[in-house]
Write a protein that binds this DNA or RNA. Sequence first.
DNA 1: GAAAGTACATACAAAATTGTAGGATACTAA
DNA 2: TTAGTATCCTACAATTTTGTATGTACTTTC
Lengths: 117, 117
Amino acid sequence: MRKTASTNTINKEQLEANCGIAYTNSILSGRWKLSILAFLLDEKKLRYSELRNRLTGISERMLIVKLKELQADDLINRISHPEVPPRVEYELSKKGKSLESILIEMSKWGTKNATKK
Amino acid sequence: MRKTASTNTINKEQLEANCGIAYTNSILSGRWKLSILAFLLDEKKLRYSELRNRLTGISERMLIVKLKELQADDLINRISHPEVPPRVEYELSKKGKSLESILIEMSKWGTKNATKK
DNA sequence: GAAAGTACATACAAAATTGTAGGATACTAA
DNA sequence: TTAGTATCCTACAATTTTGTATGTACTTTC
C-alpha cells in the first residue's frame, strides 16, 4: 500500500487496492462463510453433518445456502457419494486454498484481540 | 447484531470466544468497514469529507454509523479540530494498524481474482 | 440576506440476511 | 408396518443492514 497523498485526487493504485478489498469482502462477508472455509482449511474434508456440528448455531438452511454460494464462487468442491443414506463431503478448491493466508491472518488477529475487550 | 435474548446470539458469543476468525469477522464484516480501513491505511489521515468522496456510493448516514462503530471497537481515532467550519480527521489506531497484514492479503487476493470471472 | 460548505443527527423505509417449521427422498433395519 | 438416517428443499417470518430525505449550527462568500 501507499504513502500519504497530499492532493484530493485518488490514484489508480488506491482504487485498485480498494477494489481488491471490496471484491474479497463481497465474496467472504457474512456470518458463516469464513468459518466454513476455516474448518475446511483445518480438516481438509468434512461431511455436511460434520460441518453442521462444528458451526454451532447454524441452521440447516443457512448451511446449504452458504455451501451453494461458496460452490458458485468456486471456493469449495462438493463430493457426493451415491449411497444410502447419502454421504456428501466438502473440501476447499484450489481457489479456496489460496485464501489460506487471509484466513490465517484473521485467525491470528482474532485470537490476539478477542479477549482484550 | 441480533437481540441478546435470541439463541443465535448466544451461539455467536461462543463462536467469538472459541474462534479467532469469527471474532475478526464480527468486527470487520459488512459493506464499508474494510474499505474505510484500507483508505486510512493508505493515506494515514483523512477528513470526513475526504472519506466520503473516496467511498463511492456511501451515504452520509452509513459513513457516520460505520465510523462510530470503528471508534467503538478502537480501530480508528477521531481528531476534532475546534474550528469553523468544523474539521474532523480520522486515522487508524494502533489496533487498527495491526490489521494491516489482513488488509494487504485481502487486497492482493481480490485484485488477483476479481477479473477471472 | 441568501446561498454554500462542514460534520453530523433523526425519522423512516427498503433491501439483504438469517431463522423456523415442515417436508421430500430413498433406502434400511426392527 | 413403522421408524430412522442424511442431505437437502420450500414457504414464510423475523432481524439486521443499508439507504433516503431532511434538518442543524455556525460562518464565510456572493
